[in-house]
């Protein structure tokens, strides 16, 4: 595994009104890693994803992606440069089929313009065809080709979770951020998602994984970042983090 840093976060803070969601956070994800991000509810995990993805403006601190500071880069450009994500609550596009949703994933890797679209230029038709084939192949890889023509709003939550992963991967990312990919899934499907994550990591994609299922996190991740109230309270290999007293108290405190 190479040790090159793909994503570096330094001194990152964010607050909503007076509420601090992320505080002075530093961490690094190296290329090829599966990095878990865990913490109790409200620890700032989704906010962190939104900051990295560019949905929220990062005003304090820096976010470096592939060595370049991306604080001011709009969200859609970050996809161009190799980030992709899924959402905690499904964000599949209504009024479109599952296949089209995955085709949207290829958006950043295709070029046809408005005029080419309206005039149905041969290049744009060809591009659409190849994108459709790629999206179909992506669905097939997850065993979901039977869903291709279904409306995105008609499939189950679990299926939607996997479709979102397929859609994120269609963007050919170098870094993929998965926001609770197994939340609300039946047990059997969790294993499937784990397999998917391992496979895409084997293909060289770096993964940031926000997840509540501890067994999954401990078994998948190379490295884990633990947040509480937006702060890093621990970071390191799973077996180290698991025994950290502060981590235990954050979790037990929540349970009690």
């Amino acid at each position: 595994m190479s040790r090159e840093a793909l994503l570096e976060v330094n001194g990152l803070s964010h607050s909503f009104g007076g509420l601090t969601a992320v505080a002075e956070l530093d961490f690094t994800a190296t290329r090829g890693q599966i990095k878990g991000i865990i913490g109790p509810n409200g620890a700032g995990k989704t906010t962190l994803f939104n900051l990295i993805a560019g949905i929220l403006p990062a005003k304090v601190g820096t976010i470096r992606f592939k060595g370049e500071i991306v604080n001011r880069m709009p969200a859609h450009k970050r996809v161009d440069s190799g980030m992709a994500r899924t959402f905690q609550n499904l964000q599949l596009f209504a009024g479109m089929s599952v296949l089209e949703n995955v085709m949207i994933g290829c958006h950043a890797r295709t070029r046809a313009s408005f005029l080419e679209a309206v005039l149905r230029s041969p290049a744009s038709v060809r591009e659409t065809r190849s994108v459709r084939d790629r999206a179909m192949a992506a669905l097939a890889e997850f065993g979901l080709e039977r869903l291709a023509k279904r409306q995105a709003t008609d499939i189950s939550f679990g299926e939607g979770k996997v479709v979102e992963i397929a859609r994120a991967l269609a963007a050919e990312p170098e870094l993929v951020m998965l926001d609770e990919p197994t939340a609300g899934l039946p047990h059997g499907d969790i294993q499937e998602v784990a397999t998917v994550i391992r496979k895409l990591n084997d293909d060289g994609i770096t993964v940031l994984l926000v997840e509540h299922n501890m067994r999954l996190v401990m078994s998948l991740c190379d490295d884990i970042l633990v947040l509480n109230y937006g702060r890093r309270i621990a970071e390191g290999r799973p077996e180290v983090v698991r025994k950290d007293p502060e981590v235990l108290s954050a979790y037990l405190g929540e349970d009690a």
């Binding site: 161009d80 964000q91 149905r120 963007a171």
Partner: peptide, 28 residues
């Protein structure tokens, strides 16, 4: 032609969520 194109699919995502759209590389 517009609806049935790369541009059209990008456009059609906006009705659901501009945030999700921009997270997929669409300059909303």
């Amino acid at each position: 032609n517009l609806i049935d194109s790369r541009f059209g699919r990008g456009m059609r995502t906006l009705a659901t969520s501009e945030i999700a759209a921009s997270s997929l590389g669409i300059d909303s």
